[in-house]
């Protein structure tokens, strides 16, 4: 009977396994493949001189423009010139390509502008995550303690913007912040100088916070609403004032929600390209923008490889951050898994 059940479980799992192989494992391997391999073009040139000596050379495709140049280069390398060179017979001259292991693209990441973009992404997404947490936590607490009816209503209000396309949401903010936007119009109306808002780091961070705030509220709210009202009462009963109750009970019990929320805001923030593009008019370049630009603009020319390398590094960074966050939750003894 046990066996029957396990067969059934395996069958039920099969679609998910297939799904994850096709959409998770294979893309991951492809990213790694593009990162660490280069498509090298070269010319295979073989020839023999009149006296019967044969030569064979491999000419790097990047150093010459066409096969004639490659031939010349091969002769040069053989040290032949003049008459001898004129009398060689080419037995083989063809353009070839092969895939080679390389760290070249990886190394490129450490270039100045990519490094800066990484740093900027990291900084902005940490600020955005922290701001989201500060905004979401009290809100989630109040939400979890309000009446069921008003909880539903407020939940609706949080979810409502998420039903819209992120595109529309971000564009609306552009409209608000723009030089001739809502805020500046208002400032003008009351006789103040217009303020340049779009294109500032603050605008980009605002975009992140606005777009991802629900992902912070939801997990924290979920964890908090699982805290039984009788636990609140028990804490009060045992002499806790509000602050003590919060520190000794609510905060420790909500750590798992905080962790989930932080990960769910930090990850899309650090890898976003769209928000930064729109909210800064392309002035502020985050790592996501660079990845997009490389892949879009120089696809054939190694762009996809550099893009893959950047993605891979980004993934590793996120992975490490997640592990650290989870470690933090284990140490704190948060028992409610989410």
């Amino acid at each position: 009977m046990n066996k029957g059940r396990s067969v059934k479980t395996t069958l039920l799992n099969a679609p998910y396994v297939v799904w994850s192989v096709i959409f998770i494992i294979i893309p991951l391997l492809m990213v790694a493949y593009y990162t660490f391999t280069a498509n090298v073009e070269y010319y295979d040139i073989s020839f023999s001189t009149a006296d019967g000596t044969s030569y064979s050379y491999e000419i790097d495709g990047a150093t010459v423009n066409n096969i004639e140049e490659a031939k010349e280069k091969a002769l040069e390398q053989a040290g032949l010139s003049g008459e001898t060179a004129a009398n060689v017979t080419f037995s083989e001259a063809a353009s070839q390509s092969r895939t080679e292991f390389t760290l070249e693209y990886f190394r490129e990441i450490f270039s100045k502008d990519i490094g800066r973009a990484f740093g900027r992404s990291f900084l902005y997404s940490i600020i955005a995550t922290a701001l989201s947490l500060v905004l979401a936590y009290p809100f989630a607490y109040v939400l979890s303690r309000s009446s069921v009816k008003s909880q539903k209503m407020q939940m609706m209000l949080i979810m409502l913007p998420m039903w819209m396309s992120m595109l529309v949401r971000t564009y609306s903010w552009m409209n608000i912040l723009e030089k001739n936007g809502l805020i500046n119009n208002f400032l003008e109306l009351i006789g103040l100088e217009p303020v340049e808002m779009l294109g500032t780091p603050a605008a980009v961070i605002l975009g992140m916070v606005y777009n991802y705030l629900p992902y912070m509220i939801l997990p924290i709210y979920t964890v908090m609403s699982k805290i039984e009202p009788s636990l609140h009462e028990a804490a009060e009963d045992l002499g806790c004032n509000w602050l003590q109750k919060f520190r000794r009970l609510i905060l420790p019990l909500s750590v798992p929600g905080i962790i989930s929320g932080v990960i769910m805001v930090f990850v899309p923030s650090i890898s976003t390209f769209y928000i930064s593009q729109k909210m800064s008019n392309g002035k502020i370049v985050l790592i996501g923008d660079l990845i997009e630009a490389r892949i879009k603009n120089n696809y054939a020319d190694g762009g996809v490889n550099v893009g893959a390398a950047m993605s891979l590094v980004l993934m590793v960074i996120i992975f490490i951050c997640t592990i650290i966050m989870n470690k933090f939750s284990d140490d704190d003894g948060g028992n409610i898994a989410i």
């Binding site: 009788s230 636990l231 028990a234 009963d237 045992l238 009970l249």
Partner: peptide
């Protein structure tokens, strides 16, 4: 005064 709650309300943390 102290209370013993119906479902005990022990602190899981």
């Amino acid at each position: 005064v102290n209370t013993i709650f119906q479902k005990y309300a022990l602190f899981p943390n």
